[in-house]
Write a protein that binds this DNA or RNA. Structure first.
Lengths: 222, 222
DNA sequence: GGGGAAGTCTTACGGGCGTTCGAATTTGGC
DNA sequence: GCCAAATTCGAACGCCCGTAAGACTTCCCC
């Protein structure tokens, strides 16, 4: 009866169960095309053609192309940050409110790295988010700059975990860590694969997460 | 006599001295606008208006808007990689062909970080290159993926400096380091400034370089 | 099973885009 | 000072875009 039992259903966490099927088709097709080709390179006609719906659907269900982009961005960001907050919360519970450095970094990096797995249904969403961060509209850029509440939870935890460091150092090292994360675009993996002549593979995300955690933790301990 | 002795002259290394003034005006204006607003968000009319030249100048001097983007990309990339190669070469000379880890990383990071200084004339060029990397045309993406010769010099040096690490590890850590570097967009600095409530400043590039080197070196030593 | 709301469809409008063309102008060699 | 080549200029073309209008269809409640 309800379609909310299958894997793709997490789309509808915030949406009513009676959400029009067309709206979801547009949402999914747009996310995929935006992630693969960028916002400006994908037209409303591309999206509706890929979704197999009418041209006017985007404006009817979302208001505008910009609003569609923003809604995808908002939903996926919330989803990702919810997973991060949950991991950080669990790390707090396990450690009397003062988790060690590595667990904080793991809470920050594990959710997006999980999404990166080849068969993960959010793989394309992560690529979308990385692109939207640098290619998004003014509205998205404003949100990114203004709403740092989620990041602050992590910077606070890091400050507590490394009280010997100056706050300035902690903020910069967090910035570096996020840079490592945001560099995980398909194109960068391709480049790395060429450079290493096939010795690197991003398919094993558990190994990749381990490498990133080791690198970032060492950077914070420097 | 030769203008190749001052810093600004490297623009003209590949161009004839009698290069039309208009072409340079277009080049500089386009680089600036592309860096600030992105390739797709800047029209040929924007560029020629900012440069104070005729609309047809772009197509006359460069062939097309795409070709203009590619020429800026090619020239600035060559310029940056020349500086990096020079630093790596000097590090080799100082260390009998086997420079320590930190000097290799310094050769990779110092040139772009120098460009980032508030009063550096290549400040906008670095922003351009970072944007072009992710928002560029297919042609640029192909070059980035295909031509890794410059990076290979660094990966080779790193492999020699850390023979205890597996090549796979070295390649990944280089990837992480480049991620840190490519995250140095104006928008990301703004975000960091908001998060740290003004405690961070990217104006002091010497300090920033020191922080990045410390973080990356520790990551490689992990 | 009738009626109103919700959704879908076709069609087209207005506008900005990259590019081109031919004329006008400037430049440089003799 | 002249001629040819190089450059600049104004204008327009053709295309694709996001969006809107209006007719049509489907759905659902009473």
């Amino acid at each position: 009866m309800s379609p909310t039992t299958d894997v793709a259903a997490s789309n509808e966490v915030e949406a009513a169960e009676t959400e029009a099927a067309t709206k979801n088709l547009v949402f999914v097709a747009a996310e995929r095309l935006f992630a693969l080709h960028g916002f400006q390179n994908v037209s409303v006609r591309d999206i509706t053609a890929a979704a197999g719906v009418n041209l006017a659907s985007v404006n009817y269900h979302f208001g505008s192309k910009d609003a569609l982009l923003f809604e995808i961005f908002r939903r996926r960001t919330a989803e990702l940050n919810r997973e991060r907050a949950k991991m950080l919360h669990e790390a707090n519970d396990r450690n009397d409110g003062a988790p060690p450095l590595r667990e904080i970094l793991a809470a920050l990096l594990t959710p997006p790295l999980r999404w990166l797995a080849p068969d993960h249904e959010r793989r394309i969403s992560l690529q979308f988010l990385i692109r939207a961060r640098s290619e998004g509209t003014d509205e998205i850029r404003t949100v990114l700059k203004t709403d740092v509440s989620h990041l602050r939870r992590f910077s606070d935890a890091l400050l507590r975990a490394r009280p010997d460091l100056s706050p300035e150092d902690v903020y910069w090292r967090l910035h570096f860590t996020l840079g490592m994360l945001h560099n995980n675009r398909f194109a960068e993996f391709d480049r790395l694969n060429v450079l290493s002549e096939g010795q690197t593979s991003e398919a094993d995300v558990v190994a990749l997460l381990g490498r990133m955690l080791a690198f970032a933790e060492a950077g914070f301990l420097a």
